[in-house]
């Protein structure tokens, strides 16, 4: 009994979910109109060419067989070949993944680092001006389309003034030569430089949502009986905030983080489009627009995996803080 078992249980629970993700995506793609063959070969392929292509990609087999074959391939980590790029899907994904992960990690970090203190201060200064300002900002943050924030940021900070670049992300571990600078340090700087606007664009929504939750959670915890007891025993208010209330208040936040992943990935797609970033988001859009079956299903599966991993991490963090969880059934 305990954390190890809980972890394993959560991982096992994830498998059917992933299976479902693949299945849904696979069959949705199958429902797409259009013939991949004509896409590849042009409007009037010869019968021979068409047949050859079909055989090559196994398109002449019945649906259920293709589906099972696909599953079998997936288990072996073979996600097929991209029709559009003509390279293995896995390769394409590995190429684009780091960029998206960088963006996601960066925006989540931004969101957490800003929202927690903001939420706490807001709760402490409840109904005072600081609180009102913070709440207005948070409200605006959850109401603004993230891609519009991106556009406005570009207009203001990349076009009106040239403080930040308007496109692309640079990986911090890229080689200086590839980036066109002198040293590793310069690569790092350039990387951060490119990261700023997209991070704010993607992270604002999360930051706003988290601030609201942090505030209300903190308020709730500060009203709890055990906090009152701590006060009754003479504990200083700062200690109460820091120690007695803080941990408990983070619990809803952690839950929300897990749930936010799905919208964050969607947001990443939009942000990557706005900033012309070559990540998983733009990859999937290209794949869809070109009816690149294998690529679509493969990327969806991987994104689903990212989500599942994220949820497991948040669940584990929750269980780490709240000792009650491992002993009860996860709801």
């Amino acid at each position: 009994m305990g954390r190890a078992q809980y972890t394993i249980r959560r991982i096992l629970q994830a498998i059917p979910v992933l299976l479902g993700v693949v299945t849904i995506t696979y069959f949705l793609m199958e429902a797409m109109p259009g013939d991949p063959v004509s896409i590849m070969l042009g409007p009037s392929p010869s019968a021979q060419q068409a047949a050859a292509i079909r055989a090559k990609y196994g398109l002449d087999q019945p649906l259920w067989l293709r589906y099972l074959n696909y599953l079998w391939d997936v288990v072996q980590l073979d996600l097929g070949t991209s029709l559009y790029y003509e390279v293995p899907v896995t390769q394409k994904i590995l190429e684009r993944m780091p960029v998206t992960i960088l963006l996601l990690v960066s925006s989540f970090t931004f969101a957490i680092v800003t929202s927690v203190p903001l939420g706490i201060i807001s709760a402490q200064r409840r109904n005072k001006p600081t609180d009102h300002v913070a709440r207005v900002v948070a409200l605006l943050g959850v109401s603004t389309p993230s891609f519009w924030i991106g556009l406005v940021l570009i207009i203001l900070f990349a076009y009106q003034v040239s403080w930040f670049p308007a496109t692309k992300l640079v990986l911090p571990w890229a080689s200086p030569a590839a980036v066109g600078v002198d040293s590793r340090f310069d690569v790092l700087v350039t990387s951060l430089h490119h990261l700023v606007l997209p991070t704010i664009s993607l992270g604002t929504l999360q930051m706003a949502a988290l601030t609201r939750i942090e505030r209300s959670s903190m308020l709730e915890v500060l009203g709890e009986e055990y906090v009152k007891l701590a006060r009754a025993y003479g504990v200083k208010e700062t200690t109460i905030l820091r120690k007695h209330a803080f941990r408990n208040a983070q619990l809803p936040l952690i839950t929300l983080l897990g749930l936010q992943l799905t919208s964050a990935i969607g947001g990443a797609v939009l942000t990557e489009t706005v900033f012309s970033i070559n990540g998983m988001g733009t990859l999937i859009i290209t794949a869809i627009n070109n009816q690149d079956f294998a690529l679509v299903v493969g990327t969806t599966l991987v994104l689903g995996l990212v989500f599942v991993v994220g949820v497991i991490i948040t669940d584990l963090s929750y269980a780490y803080i709240d000792p009650r969880v491992t002993f009860e059934d996860a709801d």
Binding site: V21, T262, I285, T300, F307
Partner: peptide, 12 residues
């Protein structure tokens, strides 16, 4: 249903 990033889900 939730695991598929919904933008992707809807687009597909």
């Amino acid at each position: 249903l939730y695991a598929i990033p919904f933008l992707v889900l809807v687009i597909v």
